[in-house]
Nucleic acid binder design. Structure first.
Lengths: 135, 135
DNA sequence: CTTTGTGCAAATTCTTTGCACCAAA
DNA sequence: TTTGGTGCAAAGAATTTGCACAAAG
């Protein structure tokens, strides 16, 4: 049983009140929230919280590998505290984002979960051939 | 040999000068350009072109299924005239986007093409269970 | 003390909207 | 003449930046 505080420390992140609250929120609410959603939900508990801090913290989390930025909603950046490999399903009607275990993607019935899939995208990120050779 | 004009017409798009030029650009330059890149490249030939028209046209193209919006670059929307299923590789250093045939993704050596893959994301879009049942 | 985190306000950037003019059928 | 396309200017929205204050070791 590793505490959130330990978790952050192990990843080189100093655990401030704000950072702990944001990470807790990401882990407890797996809704892939926007920066604003995180901000709105934490504001009652941390009245001095600013959106800048949420953005700063999200960037730090992504850099340190304890969060992912999900690029499925073209309007807002969304963040995910689950860093294990999995796929995302984005609903065009209500805007929700659901997790899908990877084996399910390759299964016989991609819509077994009740989703109507209209589009699938696979995006890789890294360093391209040219940039790698240029080092 | 289907002309671009026929191609647009077949998909319910009236082929104006601007629309033809934009579709030609997408098909000839498979660089997944941003709206601004399309605008800048076409401006010399169509001096009255406005960015609004580029955005309008891109939305129309995506709606009519002759272009895709690629969500791999968190800063800008990018567009792709190739609508056949394929994956994208985004280079974090130079910002280029390369196409990858789907079979390559599942192959033994994902980096055979010379890319260093740091992150893979699979995103589905459609209608979720709740929204489908709510109709 | 010294370093790092926080947060306000302003700036930046991308995209959309409102509206008027233009073009084609 | 009516419909739809184009484009300018302005608005809107998400995110970043500059800077000063606060907190922690």
């Amino acid at each position: 049983m590793t505490s959130t505080q330990q978790y952050l420390t192990e990843h080189g992140i100093k655990p401030s009140v704000q950072r702990l609250a944001i990470m807790q929120y990401l882990l407890n609410n797996r809704t892939h929230p926007t920066a604003d959603e995180v901000y709105q939900h934490l504001l009652p508990n941390i009245p001095t919280l600013s959106k800048t801090t949420v953005y700063n913290t999200m960037r730090l989390f992504v850099e340190q590998g304890v969060a992912l930025q999900v690029d499925v909603d073209e309007r807002n950046a969304r963040f995910d505290g689950v860093v294990e490999a999995h796929a995302h399903f984005y609903c065009r009607k209500c805007g929700c984002i659901k997790d899908l275990p990877l084996p399910q993607i390759r299964g016989v019935d991609p819509e077994a979960s009740g989703f109507t899939v209209e589009e699938t995208s696979i995006n890789l990120k890294g360093i391209c051939e040219n940039c790698r050779n240029a080092i």
